[in-house]
Design a protein around this nucleic acid. Structure first.
Lengths: 182, 182
DNA sequence: AAAAAATGAGACATCTATGTCTCATGTTGA
DNA sequence: TCAACATGAGACATAGATGTCTCATTTTTT
């Protein structure tokens, strides 16, 4: 469980780094309403803070997906619901995608596990007929990730509502964008 | 036309920044076999160098697309050929995607124009029946971009050849990944 | 060959983010 | 209430990247 100051710092981190990925630790401390020294007391440096943010982010993702897919009637539908559930979180987390976190074993392990879980869900969906079994799972996972990113960007740019973007991404994934597909 | 030193610096920039986006200007100068002062004589600072790299990258993209689509029988096929042509360039250019270049009007304008050209190509493909006219062009453009990125990543990770990745990305875009689609 | 231009190497100053430390103040819990 | 603990503010030191300048040397041009 996070202490009071830690919670404020983490929240400020999401907010500040989302607006500016190269923001200073001083910026984060200020936004958190906390002294710079206090930030250092809880997180040794930038890397530690980023790693902590990543761990929180992944937990948030896990929770959101868990909640969204609780009553899913199928693995395929669960993947669609997951995609939908992720969009609202993307705004505060997307900056982490461009951070070099490979050096932190804890983060790397958690990330790898999340990818594996997605891969397993895709495999299960394949067996249901939700995806073509001849298409490599690695590609489907990658396509899901990048189309989620695409959905987030169009929402961010005001070109679509989260619902519209989710629908477009899912349609693309399932049946493509050729005329006639539905 | 680029002078001798400039060409070496630009090439080193692509190489060094691809490997490490936070590399130093000193690193670039060293890789270019050029003095640090010389680099500064041609490019005032990091931003200038990045902007120059971006301009070169976009010209390379333009040229590659131009060459690849010269004899394309349709706008739709031209888009597929473009996607294929971009993959080999992605390795050296992808780092630019995470650089904040919005502040350089020249770059911003060129980038905007490239997006517009893609949008026009998509509109034309729509009229051919290559894409569903009911799907927003903005989404199709975004989907093309992100699936191109996805294709690059699987190639980079050794999970597919460029040809395989291109085929998967194009299939996804056209008919999705549901079983039965071809 | 002579003049002009470009370069390399290095010294130098600067700036900024970072990390550490201290001490007075405030907060919490026993 | 009192003691243990956390915090804020600021001073301080450091490290790394950046930008500038000089001067001898090399390269290019005329």
């Amino acid at each position: 469980m996070l202490k009071k100051s830690e919670a404020k710092i983490i929240e400020a981190g999401f907010s500040v780094f989302s607006a500016n990925p190269t923001a200073t630790l001083a910026d984060v401390a200020k936004e958190a309403g906390v002294g710079r020294a206090t930030l250092h007391r809880h997180y040794a440096g930038r890397e530690d803070l980023m790693a902590a943010l990543a761990m929180v982010a992944m937990r948030e993702l896990d929770d959101a997906i868990e909640a969204a897919t609780k009553d899913a009637p199928s693995y395929t539908e669960a993947l669609r619901l997951s995609l939908e559930a992720i969009i609202p979180l993307a705004d505060r987390q997307m900056f982490l995608a461009n951070e070099p976190l490979d050096h932190v074993p804890e983060v790397l392990e958690a990330y790898t596990q999340q990818l594996e879980e997605t891969a397993e869900a895709v495999e299960a969906a394949k067996e249901e007929g939700g995806f073509d079994a001849d298409v490599p799972t690695a590609w489907i996972v990658q396509a899901i990730e990048t189309l989620t990113y695409a959905a987030w960007t169009v929402v961010r740019d005001g070109d679509a509502t989260p619902e519209e973007a989710t629908a477009l991404a899912w349609r693309t994934l399932q049946s493509g964008l050729t005329g006639g597909a539905k």
